[in-house]
Amino acid sequence: MLSPVVSLPREQRRLLRLYSRLDDQRRASLEAFAEFLLQQQEQTGPALEAESAVPRKPEDIPRPQEESVVAAMRRLTKTFPMIDRDALLDRATSLMTAHMLQGQPADQVIDELEVLFQEHYEIYLQKNET
Rank of each mutant, 00 (worst) to 15 (best):
V54M: 05
P58A: 06
E67R: 00
S68M: 15
V70Q: 15
L48V: 05
P64K: 15
Q40N: 11
V70L: 07
A47I: 11
P64F: 10
P46Q: 12
S68T: 15
M73W: 03
A71C: 02
L48T: 04
T79I: 06
R63C: 09
G45E: 06
K57Y: 02
L38R: 10
E67N: 00
S52P: 01
K57V: 05
L76C: 02
I61F: 15
S52N: 08
L37E: 06
A71H: 15
T44S: 06
G45R: 00
M73S: 13
E67H: 01
F36G: 07
Q65I: 13
P46R: 06
P58C: 05
E66I: 10
G45Q: 01
E51K: 10
L48I: 04
V70F: 00
P62M: 14
K78M: 12
A53W: 10
V54F: 12
A53N: 01
S68Q: 06
L38V: 11
A50Y: 05
A72R: 07
A47W: 05
L76H: 05
T44E: 14
A50I: 01
V54Y: 04
P58Q: 08
Q43W: 01
Q65P: 01
S68G: 11
R56G: 05
T79F: 02
K57H: 11
E42G: 04
K78C: 12
L38I: 12
E67T: 00
A53F: 11
E42H: 08
R74L: 13
A71P: 08
F36I: 10
E49I: 01
K57M: 14
T44V: 08
A53T: 03
P58G: 08
P46E: 13
T79A: 10
R74N: 12
A47R: 13
T77I: 08
Q65C: 08
R56H: 07
P55R: 09
S68I: 10
E66Q: 15
F36R: 06
A72M: 09
P62A: 14
V70M: 01
E59H: 03
L48Q: 13
I61Y: 14
Q41H: 07
L38P: 00
F36D: 00
S68P: 04
P62F: 04
Q65S: 14
L76S: 13
P64C: 01
L48M: 05
E51R: 10
R75T: 04
